[in-house]
Design a protein around this nucleic acid. Structure first.
Lengths: 241, 241
DNA sequence: CGCCCCGTTGATCCTGTTCAACGGTCGTGG
DNA sequence: CCACGACCGTTGAACAGGATCAACGGGGCG
């Protein structure tokens, strides 16, 4: 039995995604928009009229408080919806910043609602997507609240690999499109801690850096990463040379 | 002019809630269920068929990982929906534990979908509720990632007070139905830290303990709490060269 | 080249954890 | 009735994990 397989049947989410894209193309007027690295698809405060589905590229969601604190609260890949958090208040709650050139499809919320009346299956998929988002956020919280720094980084890589696998992509080589600072911000720690954690993980051969730039990360054995997280929880010590 | 008014027009969410309850009663078959303190409305892993709206009482949502870590990821009051995170996978993702005797209304998800077809307004409100949930989770993440312990506790009280205000209840006296351990778990810190933080806040007269048990918390001036959080944040930047 | 940004690593410091002790309240049973 | 134990909350002292401060190397680009 291969060990690098996700425990949440990976085909499931993938099928939901492709079915969603298909139904959307068929039933809802669509606009395409190309975003380049650093550009934002929408910003916090923008009035909410449309939702987006990412077709290609990679986007981070940044939440910010009135007092200037800000945090990366989500990372989005092909097939992910963006903009859910604007529905309630009629304006977007976060900035959606492209980390890469990519293409997003936009759908007017009104059009979506009309489509749901005609195509109930699409409505179900829409709800499922929001539901998955909620689930993910809660797993993030759990990680932030309960894992020590190293395990948090390991779990982050595990999550990223699982996400790739869900989409049928190779998940043994991750190309981070985030700086250490961004990762740290996402995980609730400093960039130095991220750097040290990655160094320690690589020292333990749980990951490898094929490139000098250390932006790409190889995961020889995903199960080992998972094990590391569990191990950190079970008993603190060990670890270290 | 009362000064303890929330900055997010409190009437808005309140109106959404009462309108939702009304439409639900009219259009969707409902079952009532009474839960007592400590009982759970549903548990992680239960197959998902129904969603709940809390009519009275107070419920905490507990997320747990395979390895035993668990965290309170949400707190729910009258009018709040419960169970969204089960839609995607067909099973609930968290335990919903009553902290108090209360009554929840349950609606079969299938029935809701049918009602949406007839009553689009209800569908919109449903989406808004999910959207608000996402928003909430993100604000929690932001707080956990960016605030020091004392500010986190202060912000937690601020949030609770705002929630009460949104529902038209008095918000200058909070009756916590959670132990220090539960609060700490929710905020990602230990019970001792929570206790110390509360003691310090009371020493600064930002809160008061009217009762010996220290379970009730009086907030003389909500704005001051908000200010404290902002102040904790502002304490560091500036610094240039 | 000079500058900026990115990543790493070391040294030091501090916040929050851990460990421990103590008081109060409640419910149960001798 | 009171003794007992199970919780809950508070506080102190010691400790440690991660933050902060600082220095350095490398790459891309005006």
């Amino acid at each position: 039995m291969p060990a690098t397989v996700t425990r949440h049947e990976p085909t499931d989410a993938a099928r939901q995604i492709s079915e969603t894209l298909e139904l959307l193309r068929e039933h809802v007027p669509l606009k395409r928009r190309v975003v380049h690295c650093g550009e934002r698809l929408f910003r916090a405060g923008d009035s909410f009229t449309t939702l987006y589905v990412l077709n290609t590229g990679f986007i981070k969601l940044v939440n910010s408080a009135d007092d200037g604190r800000e945090q990366v609260v989500g990372l989005y890949f092909k097939g992910d919806w963006l903009g859910f958090d604007g529905i309630a208040q009629g304006r977007h709650g976060c900035d959606a910043v492209a980390c890469d050139t990519g293409e997003a499809w936009s759908f007017r919320y009104e059009d979506l609602l009309s489509a749901f009346a005609r195509e109930r299956r699409l409505m179900g998929l829409f709800h499922a997507a929001m539901s998955r988002e909620i689930r993910r956020d809660r797993d993030s919280m759990l990680a932030m609240a309960t894992l020590p720094a190293d395990a948090r980084v390991a779990d982050f890589l595990r999550y990223w690999a699982d996400t790739l696998a869900e989409r049928g992509l190779r998940n043994d080589l991750i190309t981070l499109r985030l700086t250490r600072a961004e990762i740290g911000n996402y995980l609730g720690m400093t960039l130095e801690s991220v750097s040290r954690a990655l160094s320690r993980l690589s020292r333990q051969a749980l990951i490898r850096f094929p490139e000098k730039g250390r932006r790409d990360i190889e995961i020889p054995e995903l199960g080992a990463l998972r094990g590391f997280v569990a191990h950190c929880v079970a008993a603190e010590p060990a670890m270290v040379h």
